[in-house]
Amino acid sequence: MGKKVRIADASEVPEGSAGEFVAEDRVIALFHVDQQYYAMDGVCPHAGGPLGEGSLNGTVVTCPWHGWQFDVTTGKHCLNDRLCHPTFPVSVEEDGIYIELPE
């Protein structure tokens, strides 16, 4: 089991949107899709773009810098199955949204 870290209030990421947060020393992109929250590494592996600032269409986020697309539920790149971006388990608790980071 990893380390549980609070990253946001539920009100900070409305349904159908994304946000960028910092947990420990990592940038985290948090997405709110179909009443579920998903978290992934917030730095695009292509050129370091901010995935939490990308456009969200269903479960697909598009990096605002160069258009790389990832499924936020799995971390998989939409055109290349060999590319899988790190994701993190998310839990919603009374005092906010938490993710689980590896130790």
Rank of each mutant, 00 (worst) to 15 (best):
C84N: 03
L79R: 12
T73A: 10
S55T: 07
V22E: 03
A39D: 15
D81T: 07
R82Y: 12
Q36G: 09
V27E: 12
T87V: 13
D41M: 03
L56W: 10
E24P: 08
T59G: 15
F70D: 11
G48K: 03
C63S: 00
C84I: 05
W68H: 02
D41W: 02
A47P: 08
V60S: 04
T87Y: 05
V72P: 09
L51Q: 08
G75P: 12
G52E: 09
R26G: 07
L30Y: 06
E24I: 13
N57W: 00
P45V: 06
F88K: 07
C78W: 04
R26L: 14
G67Y: 03
T87H: 13
W65P: 12
V27D: 07
A39N: 01
A39P: 12
D34E: 15
C44L: 03
V61D: 05
C84S: 06
A23P: 15
F70G: 09
P64W: 02
H85R: 02
G54A: 10
A23I: 14
F31K: 04
G75R: 01
V33L: 07
V22C: 02
A23K: 02
H46I: 13
V61E: 08
L51V: 14
P50F: 02
I28A: 12
D34Y: 01
C44G: 09
P50T: 04
R26A: 12
G42I: 10
V22F: 06
L51N: 03
V61W: 01
Y37L: 06
N80D: 15
L56V: 14
D41F: 06
C84G: 05
T74C: 08
D81Y: 00
Q69P: 13
M40C: 11
H66L: 10
Q36I: 08
Y38P: 10
F31M: 10
A39F: 03
F88R: 06
E53D: 12
M40L: 15
G58H: 04
P64S: 00
N57D: 14
T59Y: 08
L51D: 07
L30G: 05
P86I: 01
R82C: 15
D25M: 09
Y38Q: 09
Y37D: 11
H85M: 15
P86C: 12
W68R: 02
C63L: 04
Q69A: 11
H66F: 04
H77F: 05
Q35A: 15
Q36A: 14
T87M: 12
S55C: 11
Y37W: 01
W68E: 09
I28F: 06
Q35F: 08
H32C: 13
M40Y: 02
L56T: 10
L56Q: 11
H77N: 14
W65K: 02
T73K: 06
D34M: 05
D34L: 12
H46P: 10
F31D: 03
V33G: 06
V27H: 02
D41E: 11
H32K: 07
P64C: 00
H66M: 03
D71A: 07
V61S: 01
V61L: 04
H85L: 12
F31P: 08
W68N: 04
T62C: 09
R82D: 14
Y37G: 06
L83H: 07
W68L: 03
N80E: 14
G67L: 05
R82I: 13
E53K: 01
I28N: 00
C78L: 13
